[in-house]
Write a protein that binds this DNA or RNA. Structure first.
Lengths: 320, 320
DNA sequence: TCAAAAGTGTTATCCTTACACCCATGT
DNA sequence: ACATGGGTGTAAGGATAACACTTTTGA
């Protein structure tokens, strides 16, 4: 969708002062060995990207071209994440716009090219993995640092506000952890000056950063946006299957969802959920896997993509 | 969010062949007299828009500037909708990118400027208003035309596929109507050549269009995107209040939601839903309105924006 | 007195949640 | 035997949906 033509545009004059550079940038995700991985290029923490060019048929196909050229990784599902503009740079006569995309794929080729570099996203966001309980660093490091930050605010209204925001984002003060708030958490840490990018951007070096690998420019924020979007999307649209092999067991499926969500889920209930929504069908085969009773193998029912597009109604409609 | 700076960019060379023009374009919504209205400029069916300029602090502030300059309408809530590129135009050496936004506001000023022009969005999408039952045109016009289109497909697989897509989008064949599919419906009609924009874009004049006012360029598709987004969003985020006066009755609130959703909702259940989620609080006053018993007046509890950010969990978490 | 809108209650049903428990295989 | 993972059952609690009914005003 969003790919058919725009009509009836007035002819344009030549390039003008307000023209901008448009960059395409991709968060490419695969789950490898129960770890949610993101594709970076070279040895640096850099997301694959490139300029949008005349030759590209559309923005999406531009993303495909760049990623496949630079990493050799073919992409499956793609969706747009967000578009943002550079902040003014003094003396610059041009600005750049970044259009970010989320892409899902499978790493099948064991021959990991040097161009292709997969890394767990929890290297960048160690506070996001709650599969073995809340990480110690959340209580030991983030909580005191964030509370300090709150406490150092100028007025008491701001102090309370910061406390509350930290509490909501990280589940302090008896609040529940919400895995979908990945972006808010990163932005809060940035605002509090607790990630390297913040001190780097502002030229200050005062605060010691919190654990978690930084990325170039604002790539870590884009990655956080992708994680948040994916964690929210798996709940109402069957996108997980883009990350699965053609045939899989229900536990493999569960582990994949757990990897993305960063939390453990209840096995019996998860199975019922999947079966009840008729997302999968048995292949008839069973797997001869590591340890335990052989598991039935399933495949994704591609038909569900057509069928319902799950209503998702929350409105109490009349005379139903 | 998404407004802090990008760091460490390499210096850029001067303008290059791949630079593009970036347009900002806004779907500005208000509900006036129980009708969901969209802001257009002049007498034409044109959404307010303008180029992104060096002077703008960010994309969002650029949208605010343009809309307020062109229409005098102050904007409240704003969110990004989608970014897309023009299709190649033969011989063009430049392309344009459109970044579209959804904005919510209230029309308070009864002195409707000539610059400001509000029109029901159901003028553009008459098939979307199901508040008085399914519009006759859906069964009388759209259904036969879409079935013809399906029937005229080259192969039988495509015929079936088209039938199914039409059925899902418009609720044919005993399917339920889903108000969130506004964009799919428009795109289906475009693909079937049943809206003016389609024949205009392809230079053909063969088919007679279906009722519904066309817009310039692809503005109608952008509007459909905004409608779909808003219809989906009101279900899980309290954005309706951006469209309400500071103080209102529960029935006014219900009518506003109904206007947006294009369907009637059940009064008692709606009230419970609102009260249960503690979205509003009584002002203590009652309204002396048109006909019937005086209604309690409510105001939005802005606190809810902070509090929960409603989990929206669909995963069966373990040992919760 | 009636129309119109405000507001309350009650029930059946479904979905989610939380457990408890048994099955099949390899070592 | 037991560890590991596969797989089923069930009962409590909450949310939703459907509908019936009472209250308060103005014309």
């Amino acid at each position: 969708m969003h790919d058919h033509a725009k009509g009836n545009r007035k002819g344009r004059a030549g390039r003008k002062a307000n023209d901008v550079k448009a960059d395409l940038i991709a968060v490419v995700v695969a789950v490898i060995n129960r770890d949610p991985c993101v594709l970076t290029i070279g040895l640096e923490a850099v997301l694959p990207s490139g300029p949008f060019e005349l030759a590209h048929r559309s923005l999406q196909s531009g993303v495909r071209v760049w990623v496949e050229q630079r990493t050799g990784q073919p992409l499956g599902y793609i969706e747009q994440l967000y578009t943002f503009a550079d902040r003014d740079r003094i003396g610059a006569d041009e600005r750049a716009i970044s259009i970010s995309y989320l892409a899902l794929t499978r790493e099948e080729d064991a021959t990991s090219s040097t161009r292709r570099c997969w890394g767990t996203w929890y290297d960048y966001f160690p506070w996001e993995d709650h599969r073995s309980g809340t990480p110690a660093m959340v209580g030991d490091v983030l909580r005191p640092r964030l509370f300090d930050w709150a406490h150092n605010a100028a007025d008491s209204a701001t102090r309370l506000e910061r406390r509350r925001r930290a509490g909501v984002a990280f589940g302090f003060d008896d609040r529940a952890w919400n895995e979908e708030l990945a972006l808010q958490r990163y932005e809060l840490l940035y605002e509090a000056g607790l990630v390297e990018e913040a001190t780097r951007d502002h030229g200050s070096t005062a605060l010691v950063s919190v654990p978690g690998r930084p990325m170039i420019a604002d790539h870590r924020r884009i990655l956080a946006t992708g994680i948040a979007r994916l964690r929210s999307k798996i709940k109402y649209r069957p996108v997980v299957f883009e990350l699965m092999p053609p045939v899989f067991t229900l536990l493999q499926l569960q582990r994949t969802v757990e990897a993305l969500a960063g939390r453990l889920i209840n096995k019996p209930n998860f199975r019922r959920l999947v079966e009840q929504q008729e997302l999968v069908e048995e292949t008839g085969e069973t797997s001869v896997e590591t340890g335990g009773r052989p598991a039935k193998l399933y495949r994704f029912r591609h038909a569900v993509l057509d069928e319902s597009i799950a209503a998702g109604t929350k409105l109490p409609l009349a005379r139903g």
